[in-house]
Design a protein around this nucleic acid. Structure first.
Lengths: 208, 208
DNA sequence: ACATTATTGTGAATTTTGGAACAAAAAAGT
DNA sequence: ACTTTTTTGTTCCAAAATTCACAATAATGT
């Protein structure tokens, strides 16, 4: 029903809607949004219908209403406070990544085992890992980004889960195990790039 | 047939196989690999069968042979030279990301419009964007990582395509248009995190 | 040598996902 | 008022992906 893919598409619709809005549009029809995002119009309508969003049978959807709906569904009514664990290359980059702030996602703190990395990166202070538990509890944080090396990932995740984290975006290239009530979504950079390499070669070979 | 997902899984199998190998294993059965990666055993066998990898009807697959096959399929016999365009947070982080080097992917150069960013990051030199075309042609580069801001993404991609890039891993949160012969794979960080936020809330609400 | 067991490889069944098509509804025109 | 046009919402259909299930077969034990 409401699956990973449909939620991801919702985010992408939202993004394109902002773009349409800045161009002065007030209403949008499924067809145009579909083209912008790269899916079919029925897909768009189906997604909206799935989440109870309805438009008008002529004149399509009001952009402001749509954005409001999407923001509500995606919890954008409140600022989402997120921690990042691991202040290496990826972790540090994400601490400064403006895309998050733009979408109301606030990186509230970073954590790392290495005391040398417990400095400040952009607007984010990095604390020693031992402080994670108390910090998460005291601030009621639910979401974390895991950007530590492969072999540290599982133990660090366990600490996060133990502290009460309920959702993790993981960058370690490894399968993590967590209790059901904790949602894990992994971004695997190497496989994604290998995928590009594979298909760009496949395309070339087909045309030879 | 050979779809995006199956190729991504191959990468993940490879990763887990290295892990098994360092633990001293010589052979592996589909069941164990499946468990490690988090898929079903038939999925593993189907994937292998799809790419013409075969095992032994007792005793499973020889790990070394498997890794050799996967490396061949994923083009790991040669070092893959990749450029990164955009030396902001994400781009710079990827230039130093050890995961790529570990998998035989060499970041050979970076490019950016901003002259201030044309410095050196780790082992990677960053050149002005104007030099991209010549560099790509002279070095026969086929793969690029696109890590520029949203509004620069399409024009910069056009430059890359014009220079002969045939595969792109894109981090800009926007739909890109490229000729068929250029493969594009996008990693959208904000939607991925929003996905975690959505489902972690959905899980909590279900249990209330 | 033969029986037994473990495990692959694959065809069939199932589930999931996406797309086409069209009736229902709202707006616009006449 | 009513006809036409546009566009949604939804049902039905197709394709893709996944899992099931089991025959084929290779190793092992007796």
């Amino acid at each position: 029903m409401k699956n990973r893919k449909s939620v991801i598409r919702l985010s992408r619709y939202k993004n394109e809607l902002h773009r349409f809005k800045t161009q002065g549009a007030v209403r949008i029809v499924s067809n145009d949004l579909a083209y912008a995002v790269g899916v079919t119009a029925s897909q768009v309508r189906k997604d909206f219908s799935l989440f109870g969003i309805s438009g008008n049978r002529r004149g399509g959807y009001k952009i402001d209403e749509l954005i409001a709906w999407l923001n509500k569904i995606l919890r954008k009514d409140e600022v989402q406070k997120v921690i990042i664990v691991g202040a290496g290359n990826i972790g540090s980059a994400l601490m400064q990544y403006s895309g998050f702030a733009k979408e109301g996602i606030q990186i509230i703190a970073g954590f790392d085992i290495d005391p040398l990395k417990c400095r400040r990166v952009g607007a984010v202070s990095i604390y020693p890992l031992e402080k994670l538990n108390a910090f998460v509890r005291d601030n009621g944080i639910g979401i974390g980004i895991l950007a530590v090396p492969e072999n540290a990932a599982q133990p660090v995740l366990d600490i996060m889960v133990g502290a009460g984290i309920k959702g993790v975006l993981n960058f370690a290239p490894i399968r993590l195990r967590a209790p059901e009530e904790c949602v894990i979504n992994s971004v695997n950079l190497v496989p994604e790039l290998e995928n590009v390499i594979y298909f760009s070669n496949a395309v070339r070979e087909k045309s030879e």
